[in-house]
Design a protein around this nucleic acid. Sequence first.
DNA 1: AGCCTTTGACCAGCG
DNA 2: TCGCTGGTCAAAGGC
Length: 95
Amino acid sequence: MPEDGYQWKKYGQKFIKNIQKIRSYFRCRDRRCGAKKKVEWQPGDPSVRVVYDGAHLHGSPSSSNGGGGGQDGAANRYDLSTQYFGGAAPTPQTR
DNA sequence: AGCCTTTGACCAGCG
DNA sequence: TCGCTGGTCAAAGGC
């Protein structure tokens, strides 16, 4: 569970055949927070692709320390694009 | 007590 | 109409 500064709750995991990858579904612990996170990786690959969906309605939790939070900075802009983690992009110039 | 994690089953949309 | 997939929910156990 790669900590990105937010607390997530895993609510499901499935193997997507379309891409032959395992996908884990995470949701922000806060219900009022419609932020969602999906993590997918290939079987046998330590690299994982993290996909952020939605945005946190509350600011970011001061630190990785759970609890807190509540800052109304609303300064969190999550790119709906896919983000790579752990340098899983050895050759991003494939495109 | 609260929180977290894991699995199975269900539902909806599409061709 | 059927089958398939993707996405979500619920319950239980452990610390």
